[in-house]
């Protein structure tokens, strides 16, 4: 491949269409920055009263705003992490099955079904979580506490309804599964055929070919997919608010009634009846979530860039 050379002498030729197109892409790019800035300014401006007020005015009279938001930050990260741990292996498995194992027709049907999951509203996932999933997994939780209660994660007392952080995380995992699967599948499909064929020609089995050629090539793409999924899990509101039985605690126990709440679910639960400075406090927790999501995206970018050199994509 040779690089395109500039036309000799003078400026490159531009037509009206070029100018309109470049302008409109610039406007679109600027608009997203403007929207983000507007949201950030709103969050900061509305948060200030809560950060400056005497903490005794806040709901529950915490020692400081940070004591109020602390358990929520923990709950947000904890539930999203569990969801990612549950969803990522399954998503990679589905993506590999679709891209490398399934017959072509089955692969396309499966792809459609996975995409369909992404179209289900989160309220429906919440209802499913309460009415179907929680009662179904409750006996399993009882079993876990009875036999594996010595592991701190499964310490009792067991929840009588199954509406625990593990159930919420399973619902979240189902919700982030489509996006991780879809992106991973696209990345795996782009593995250079030559790499795959070379691996097979050297005597690799299909599994060895995948570990040698497909996964290293797709690693950075899978990481970005996981981070997008994590972003959705961090911000998911309604499903968590409906499924989780929340308290203001920091606890790693997965199957008890006492679970840490998430920032987004806490806003959804308390905003309808909040007034005065408590509205500002809720918006301030929203600002904290904004910052957390920012940091997660930064880490994702960094991870993707670090891996880029080894991915074989270039």
């Amino acid at each position: 491949m040779t690089t395109a050379t500039k036309p000799k002498g003078g400026k490159p030729i531009t037509r009206l269409g070029d100018r309109i197109f470049s302008r409109s892409t610039f406007v679109a790019g600027a608009a997203i920055l403007a929207v983000l800035a507007a949201v950030a300014i709103f969050l900061v401006a509305q948060s200030l009263p809560a950060l400056l007020t005497d903490p005794a005015n806040l709901k529950g009279e915490p020692s400081s705003f940070w004591a109020y938001v602390g358990p929520l930050v923990f709950g947000t990260l904890w539930s999203a992490t569990i969801a990612l741990v549950l969803a990522l292996p399954v998503a990679i498995g589905i993506a590999l099955f679709i891209s490398h194992y399934a017959p072509r027709r089955l692969a396309s049907i499966l792809g459609y079904i996975i995409d369909l999951l992404a179209a289900v509203p989160s309220v429906v996932f919440g209802l499913w979580g309460i009415k179907v999933l929680a009662p179904a997994v409750q006996p399993l939780y009882t079993f876990l506490v009875d036999h594996f209660g010595w592991i701190p994660l499964f310490s009792g007392p067991v929840s009588g309804t199954g509406r625990t952080i593990l159930t919420a995380a399973i619902v979240l995992a189902v919700m982030i599964l489509p996006i991780i699967t879809a992106l991973s599948r696209e990345v795996f499909l782009q593995t250079p055929k030559l790499h795959e064929e070379a691996a097979l020609a050297l005597g690799a089995t299909r599994w060895e070919m995948i570990t040698m050629a497909v996964l290293p090539f797709g690693r950075s793409g899978v990481i970005s997919a996981a981070m997008l999924g994590l972003g959705r899990a961090l911000g998911e509101t309604m499903a968590v608010a409906m499924v989780l039985s929340p308290s203001t605690v920091v606890s790693f126990a997965l199957v008890t009634s006492v679970n840490p709440n998430t920032i987004a679910a806490n806003i959804a639960l308390n905003f309808p009846e909040a007034f005065g400075v408590n509205i500002n406090a809720l918006i301030a927790t929203g600002l904290v979530l904004f910052v957390i999501t920012f940091i997660v995206n930064f880490i994702a970018r960094w991870a993707v860039n670090r891996r880029k050199d080894f991915s074989g994509a270039n």
Binding site: I130, K131, P135, Q138, G162, R163, M242, S245, P246, S247
Partner: peptide, 28 residues
């Protein structure tokens, strides 16, 4: 108070959430 004061027990969203939790749970 409007907010439940203890961290014990199980929380559910709204009247319908409480009814769902009691109906679908055991010994609730």
């Amino acid at each position: 108070a409007d907010a439940f004061p203890f961290t014990t027990g199980e929380g559910a969203k709204g009247t319908s959430g409480v009814i769902d939790a009691v109906t679908n749970g055991t010994n609730t």
